[in-house]
């Protein structure tokens, strides 16, 4: 039994995560993704060491209870595998092995030396539902945040309470409109150098405001000042209307 295999082709998958499965934690999602690759019989390259694991690397962890149209995972397949004849079927087969609500929408072969998702993601776009707040009130609050020159926020980072100015992390903030239970915002939040999470943004909007649905529509990378997605939803993806999320192309 060969526990460690050479790293072969690297593949990037894009997937959506909506519905009940959004309550799966990031850590649990990684485990079930691993199982799904074994279910479809796609041999992955394994890490070396005491307990070899397949090499899977994700984009920015999705908070538990948030849904998304734009999740990414990079995998290295075993050198024994020729991916070319398989690749068109992979999104469909992988979706079938994953629970309802997780659907793979694109796959691509990565160039040798491609930078990891963790390094390359610079910002995310979110749809965030605020509960128990009137539209006018929410609009005022959003206006105040956008107009503020600085926004100091006390928060826990690496086990310590620190205060930092998070205004630079708010790249864009707009009120979309009312929902059944509250008001929806669209927020474009940086993940570096300063990051801001959706729950932290809601605290800035107002203490005591409840958070409803949180949905990630995009993860963005910025290369040479040009913003793009790590992998656009592919047109080669087999149409599967029942599981495909609605998705708006990035402008």
């Amino acid at each position: 039994m060969n526990a460690v295999s050479q790293q072969g082709t690297r593949l990037r998958f894009r997937y959506a995560e909506v519905g009940k499965v959004r309550f799966i934690s990031h850590r649990d999602l990684a485990r079930l993704m691993e199982r799904a690759f074994r279910q479809i019989g796609l041999p992955l390259a394994y890490s070396e060491g005491y307990r070899p694991r397949p090499r899977l690397s994700f984009g920015l962890a999705l908070p538990t209870a948030a849904s998304s149209d734009a999740e990414y995972v990079d995998v290295s397949v075993a050198t024994t595998v020729d991916v070319d004849p398989l690749i068109d079927d992979l999104p469909h087969r992988l979706s079938a092995a994953l629970p309802d609500g997780i659907s793979v929408t694109a796959v691509a072969v990565l160039e040798p030396g491609a930078v990891s998702l963790q390094q390359v993601i610079a910002s995310c776009t979110w749809r965030i539902e605020l509960l128990d707040v009137a539209v006018d009130d929410a609009a005022d609050r959003v206006q105040r945040i956008v107009a503020a020159p600085t926004l100091p926020l006390e928060r826990e980072r690496k086990g310590k309470l620190t205060t930092s100015d998070v205004r630079p992390a708010i790249l864009d903030l707009e009120l979309v409109g009312p929902t059944r239970n509250g008001v929806e915002l669209e927020a474009h939040l940086a993940t570096k150098p300063t990051s801001l999470r959706p729950a932290e943004l809601v605290r800035l909007v107002g203490e005591g405001i409840g958070i409803g649905q949180v949905h990630r529509t995009h993860q963005w990378m910025i290369i040479d000042d040009i913003r793009s997605e790590p992998l656009a939803e592919a047109s080669t993806c087999p149409p599967d209307a029942s599981t495909r999320p609605t998705y708006e192309l990035a402008s």
């Binding site: 009940k20 309550f23 799966i24 538990t64 209870a65 629970p99």
Partner: peptide
Amino acid sequence: EPLLPSVQKPARYIGCED
């Protein structure tokens, strides 16, 4: 559903298992 974001390990309550 609205209770789940604030409880520990909410995936315990959703079913959806293979």
